[in-house]
């Protein structure tokens, strides 16, 4: 591990972080903690305040109110010290088009005070790792969005940062490039306890990569926690799929509904989707169906995904209470 871990369990703490622009409040009273070595997804639609949050955490924008600590330091008072411990992949890669990939990396390394030899070696390793070795000495002008992201990712990692901010790392990428970048990020996240903040509005990648999620909407923290925790707050009960080989007809559904502990039954192409009190209800359902002569191929509990949680939050926002869940610091 190269960087000296700063004291404490938390990589990032924010308390009431707020920033207003002439156009309105971009980040509103944000309070959350990120543990060291954790991957946190900052989720929210465009304009939710994700980029503004990152800028405040890295001391680029000053908050109007509230405080933050990143790697144990205050970004307002010690911005450069924070920035030496963090790496950022900005939304548009922000490479100088007129320089080569390698020159872009060398420039960042010089600003960061890395010794030239070390920087060159490390740039080579990172460009190789992200599949850019063959293009390392080409000017960035001709690069695709995916190539740019990979070079910018290499640049963000040059100094082995303690905290990595990734702002929409897959926006503008085709599916293959997206899978590629997500795989790289997945590998980075598990690497010697680096903390990663992943801003995205793509739920798929957040679900694959993140330990916890913070849902932002109009600058406010709407939910914070693991998908499982959030699901437990949102729903009582467990979703499950029944594979019956064919859509469940009305009489089959009626039979399922009569089993104690079944809350909801919806037909699907090959059976039914259920909402039940808990796992113990499922064998009862299967038994009831078998008894009635219905063939049951499989019964699979389906813990809610991050997507389920996110869309449920969105649905509840559209059609307000039961009291929206307030996010809280861990």
């Amino acid at each position: 591990m190269a960087w000296q871990p700063s004291a404490g369990e938390l990589a990032i703490e924010t308390r009431g972080l707020t920033r207003t622009f002439p156009s309105g409040r971009a980040v509103d009273d944000l309070t959350f903690d990120v543990r060291r070595g954790e991957v946190l997804a900052l989720l929210g639609p465009n304009g939710a305040g994700k980029t503004t949050t990152i800028r405040m955490l890295n001391g680029v924008l000053a908050p109007d109110a509230g405080t933050a600590r990143v790697a144990g330091l205050d970004p307002v008072a010690a911005g450069d010290e924070v920035r030496r411990r963090t790496g950022v992949l900005t939304e548009n890669a922000g490479l100088d088009e007129r320089l080569t990939a390698r020159e872009n990396l060398a420039f960042a390394a010089r600003i960061r005070g890395l010794p030239t030899g070390v920087a060159a070696e490390r740039a080579g390793v990172l460009l190789e790792r992200f599949g850019m070795a063959a293009d390392a000495d080409r000017q960035v002008t001709g690069f695709s969005t995916g190539q740019r992201k990979r070079v910018a990712l290499a640049r963000a990692l040059l100094h082995d940062p303690e905290v990595l901010f990734l702002d929409e790392p897959t926006s503008g990428l085709d599916p293959a490039a997206t899978r590629d970048v997500v795989a790289h990020i997945g590998a980075l996240a598990s690497e010697h306890g680096r903390t990663v903040i992943l801003c995205t509005h793509f739920l798929g990648e957040a679900g694959k990569l993140a330990d916890r999620m913070a849902v932002l909407h109009h600058g406010r923290l709407e939910a914070f926690g693991t998908p499982e925790d959030l699901a437990a707050d949102l729903w009582s009960g467990l979703a499950a799929d029944l594979d019956l080989g064919t859509t469940a007809g009305p009489d089959v559904r009626a039979r399922i509904e009569r089993v104690a502990g079944v809350h909801e039954v919806h037909p699907t192409v090959d059976g039914a989707a259920l909402l039940v009190r808990d796992r113990e209800v499922l064998p009862e359902v299967v038994a009831a169906l078998v008894q009635a002569g219905v063939r049951v191929y499989a019964s699979t509990p389906r813990p809610p995904t991050l997507e389920d949680v996110y869309f449920e939050l969105e649905a509840r926002r559209a059609a307000p209470p039961p009291a929206p869940h307030e996010g809280a610091a861990a």
Binding site: G72, R84, R112, L114, P161
Partner: peptide, 18 residues
Amino acid sequence: MSIAAPELAPGLGTAPRR
């Protein structure tokens, strides 16, 4: 693939860069 970032000594958070 680790290198030592210079001057990341703990406790020197606000020390001015040379």
